[in-house]
């Protein structure tokens, strides 16, 4: 991330240049001025400042391109903008044009960490069976009028039903089932089947490797076996021969 602090307007310039460059490969001062709805003379001033910071390649009367660094900074600004816009639309159900202009204001104040949190939160809302699309719609409804307990009950039942059917169709689709001994370190897996038998199977369950639990593969020992995993918040090492018999769904991060 850029360590320099860019003023709000410079970030806006960078964003605009980015959008033009993505389509046209290079930008002209005139186009920038048009998009920003400012006079060509103020564009020149801003471009000079950006060039001083080594963010754009600019000389008068020539085409304008982004430097490598400028590209990175611009992408960061654009990403912040997109995430915020996404949040406003998807979670708060604000309409698109308003979301766009508000995101434009907010993007300059929000740090990357918070943006990451926003991303996670959106992902969470989309994925968690208790939230999802219908939940957001419920929020719309809530903003209109206070819901009845009856409505809530119906909603919960519906959610559970949907969850069950999704689970079943998920099984049929067999989304990328992997054996635990083949998972790369750093990945997380939700356990779906345990083909171990007898004492070993029982032991695995007692240690917290039950069906449905989420396991993170931490590392493989220097000699290639055993494997260290994190389950229920603690670190456990297991041999590959046993992990071979446990299957799960790879979770994306």
């Amino acid at each position: 991330m850029s360590e320099m602090v860019l003023s709000k307007s410079l970030e806006d310039y960078l964003e605009v240049i980015y959008h033009i460059v993505v389509v046209e490969q290079a930008a002209k001062a005139k186009d920038i001025a048009q998009k920003m709805q400012v006079k060509a003379s103020s564009v020149t001033g801003a471009l000079r400042q950006l060039a001083e910071r080594d963010l754009v390649n600019y000389s008068p009367y020539d085409q304008i391109t982004l430097t490598r660094k400028g590209m990175e900074v611009a992408q960061d600004v654009v990403r912040r903008h997109e995430v915020l816009k996404d949040f406003l639309i998807k979670v708060l159900s604000i309409d698109e044009s308003e979301a766009d202009s508000v995101a434009c204001q907010m993007e300059h104040a929000v740090t990357t960490e918070i943006i990451d949190r926003f991303t996670k939160f959106i992902e969470f809302v989309e994925r968690c069976p208790r939230a999802g699309d219908s939940w957001i719609k419920g929020f719309d409804y809530y903003c209109g009028e206070k819901p009845q307990a009856d409505y809530c009950r119906k909603c919960i039942t519906q959610t559970v039903e949907n969850f069950e059917t999704n689970l079943k169709s998920g099984d049929e689709m067999n989304e990328s089932t992997v054996r635990l001994n083949q998972v790369k370190p750093g990945s997380r897996v939700k356990i779906t089947t345990n083909k171990l038998s007898g004492v070993t199977a029982r032991r695995f369950q007692e240690m917290g490797l039950t069906i449905g639990s989420i396991v993170k593969v931490e590392r493989v020992a220097p000699l290639g076996d055993p494997v260290e995993i994190i389950v229920k918040g603690y670190n456990l090492s297991l041999r590959k021969e046993d992990l071979d018999k446990i299957e799960g769904i790879l979770l994306e991060d």
Binding site: T200, R203, F204, P226, Y234, N235, S237, L238, R239, D242
Partner: peptide, 11 residues
């Protein structure tokens, strides 16, 4: 007797 290899790596 077989006892599976399961070893905790404590903090």
């Amino acid at each position: 007797e077989t006892v599976p290899f399961m070893m905790e790596l404590p903090p």
